[in-house]
Design a protein around this nucleic acid. Structure first.
Lengths: 188, 188
DNA sequence: CAGAAACCACTACGGCTGTTGTAGTTTGAA
DNA sequence: TTCAAACTACAACAGCCGTAGTGGTTTCTG
């Protein structure tokens, strides 16, 4: 089991792409090889089992979702308040919908984790950390609301993303409007 | 391709169970046979291809999600207002979380539909109809809000369900409280 | 520079999958 | 009752899957 980090990352990213594009069913070692443009057998060398492959994707996807430090610094420098919070959430939605395949892969992984304790541990840890981080960030804005309100927002945003990225219920509301409504009504 | 409706339903229900329990990857003709307790090859006789099988699941799942006529009549007889609406939503959440495997299967199908136009048509139709129905029901309650607010609720509830049924973000809020908060803040 | 360790490309295998075909059996109409 | 149509059980095929193993090559270390 080689540990070359560059190749590992390359393979994991290809795996996420495959997972989003062809679903859990299409995620095979050989498909990852093809997607990464490496010789057949390479993914199998790095991730000796399917569990290992999924675990690696679960770890990698959170690195990929990590927000741009520069943007966070920029937002952190602004005046706390409602507008900042809306922009923060819009940044989340924008970042996730700009890479729809990544978000779709995350949903696939969350479903898969419901059946794989090992994956659940990896994914659950980072998801919880993300939620805790949002609670902390929100606290700095001085806005009303606490952990409960952030949870509401999380649920609401995830539902919106699910609708945007999969078969929609067909309400043609502007995502930006939806986000603004969530913030204004759920938190502020 | 036989058309025996009873057997068809039996097989589709088994398929939904398999889909929820083992994911898209585990959904095979033979697994459906085993789950339904019928001889190997039966599912293959009824659904000649994997596409046909998924399409049948997409149609069947909406029948399964159809609300109990009696409950709807009961709710319809009550005084319109906020409490009625909360109870209506709680009924939705209760009905979907009481059969978690069915809801999980729906999420799997929605993901799958993102890649299969045929399935998307089947699933999209019924999802849109469900949304339209909710808009119509809401109109009868005389509460504030319109289609936009119902869309917000739909997104929010789907997100809550996703969290409850897959790897959670770990905010330990009571689902009943969350539902009540969604209604009170998003609509009323 | 020499040797060992890590990495890489490739192969092999048993098992499962989608799909099709084909006999036997039941059902229902004439 | 008769006979065709529908249904059922079963088998077979090629192809892909996870996994493990094996030499050759590169890279690091002393």
């Amino acid at each position: 089991m080689p540990s070359n980090p560059d190749r590992r990352r390359l393979l994991a990213d290809a795996g996420l792409r495959v997972l989003a594009e062809h679903g859990a069913r299409g995620l095979t070692h050989r498909a990852v090889d093809a997607g990464a443009g490496v010789p057949a057998g390479t993914a199998s060398n790095y991730f000796r089992s399917r569990d290992a492959l999924l675990g690696a994707l679960g770890e990698r996807i959170m690195e990929r979702f990590a927000p741009d430090e520069k943007v966070i610094a920029e937002l952190g420098a602004r005046e706390p308040g409602r507008d900042l919070f809306v922009d923060y959430l819009r940044y989340i939605v924008e970042r996730t919908t700009r890479q729809p395949e990544l978000t779709r892969a995350l949903i696939e992984l969350r479903l898969e984790a419901a059946r794989r304790p090992g994956l659940a541990e990896i994914l659950g840890g980072t998801l919880r950390r993300g939620y805790a981080g949002d609670v902390a960030f929100h606290a700095t804005t001085g806005l009303a609301g606490g952990p409960f309100e952030i949870a509401l927002l999380h649920y609401a945003l995830d539902g919106l993303l699910l609708d945007m990225l999969t078969t929609s219920i067909g309400a043609d509301a502007d995502p930006d409007d939806v986000v603004a409504a969530f913030v204004d009504r759920l938190v502020v």
